[in-house]
């Protein structure tokens, strides 16, 4: 497997010497699902923002798809974000006066897809995310879980190399959070989507292939998770009567 993202000594310091990120070395392989966890202020969102070009490192390197991007100008980053990355945030940031379909197709059209191709991709995505029947609805009428699924469809329309998600379930009740996790799991398990996801929710992190636990701007510990053995319910439950 080729790494899609590699960072070397990635550092972000703020005025006055506050170090949000203290020289991180991370490698994310193609098709991998990596969760980043840790207490508030540990640097996990800073890491994600640097990977997405939403913030600039003060030192260190970022490789995306085999080439250095850390020195890119804002204009080049804008192209990278549009063509190669998908973003999902805690809040959905959908455009209220566009339909669900238009919200999803818009970044595709901006990236140069034909109207027909954008429509086909949007149809497939909404269908696979279980919201095919909502194409003509206004996002303002949808539940939080449905809006987040629309936001995920929008993030996937340009078939990004990496989906970057910052607390995607943070604003949702537990049932909606479950729906959104099912959608992300499917994108990863069925379609091999590479995902880097920041979360404080252990249940969400437990879906990843690898969990990076951050403390004070550094990766303190790394956990590799194995697919569960589905036959082991009773062993896990240890129910006694």
């Amino acid at each position: 497997m080729e790494p899609v993202i590699v960072t070397r000594g990635l550092t972000r310091e703020y005025e006055g010497g506050v170090r949000a990120l203290a020289g991180i070395d991370v490698s994310v392989e193609e098709g991998e699902f990596v969760a980043v966890t840790g207490p508030s202020g540990c640097g996990k969102s800073t890491l994600l923002n640097l990977l997405g070009g939403l913030d600039r490192p003060t030192a260190g390197e970022i490789e995306l798809g085999g080439r250095r991007v850390d020195g890119f100008s804002e204009a080049r980053w804008a192209h990278v974000r549009r063509d190669e990355l998908g973003f999902v945030f805690q809040f959905f940031n959908l455009i209220g006066n566009l339909s669900v379909a238009d919200n999803v197709e818009l970044p595709g059209l901006l990236a140069g897809l034909s109207a027909r191709e954008a429509r086909v991709r949007r149809g497939e995505l909404l269908e696979s995310l279980g919201i095919g029947e909502l194409a003509d609805a206004s996002p303002t009428r949808l539940s939080g879980g449905q809006q987040q699924r629309v936001a995920i469809a929008r993030a996937l329309i340009n078939r990004p190399k990496v989906l970057l998600a910052d607390e995607p379930t943070g604003a949702l009740d537990s049932a909606s959070a479950r729906e959104v996790m099912a959608v992300l799991r499917e994108a990863h398990d069925e379609r091999g989507q590479t995902i880097v996801l920041v979360t404080h929710d252990a249940r969400v992190a437990a879906r990843a292939d690898r969990v990076l636990a951050m403390r004070d701007g550094a990766v303190a510990h790394e956990t590799r998770l194995e697919q569960g053995d589905a036959t082991s319910v009773s062993r896990l439950m240890q129910l006694e009567v």
């Binding site: 510990h221 998770l225 194995e226 589905a230």
Partner: peptide, 21 residues
Amino acid sequence: ARQRDAYLQALRELDDVALTT
């Protein structure tokens, strides 16, 4: 850290099992 690994793995297995109920 090692204990956290074990709990996370158990949580993962529960979640996988939940898909099969």
